[in-house]
């Protein structure tokens, strides 16, 4: 199980990986701010790092919205349909 050990190794180094990832994310945003926008089709095309912000916000919104939807409206016990069928 070499592959398993490799994954194990990666997991053990997860703090290093996280730092690397964060650095590259910062670099992405920086490049996006520095480079002149390729398009001006939408107003936000001109804002550097908009996609990063929007992605974060969208993810957070989805997490909270779906949870709200589930708990207030849609969640049922797993045997909900059983007694009926």
């Amino acid at each position: 199980m070499k592959l398993a050990r490799l994954i194990e190794y990666l997991i053990s180094k997860r703090s290093v990986l996280a730092v690397l990832l964060l650095v590259s994310m910062a670099a992405l945003v920086l490049v996006d701010i520095i480079l002149p926008p390729a398009y001006t089709r939408f107003t936000w095309d001109a804002i550097g790092g908009f996609a990063a912000f929007f992605g974060f916000a969208a993810c957070a919104a989805l997490i909270f919205f779906s949870r709200f939807l589930g708990e207030k409206l849609l969640y049922r016990d797993e045997d909900y349909y059983d007694d009926h069928e």
């Binding site: 990832l21 992405l28 945003v29 992605g55 974060f56 993810c59 957070a60 997490i63």
Partner: peptide, 10 residues
């Protein structure tokens, strides 16, 4: 950017 910051939020 969208993908990685989604990951961050997760």
């Amino acid at each position: 950017q969208v993908l990685l910051f989604t990951g961050l939020a997760f």
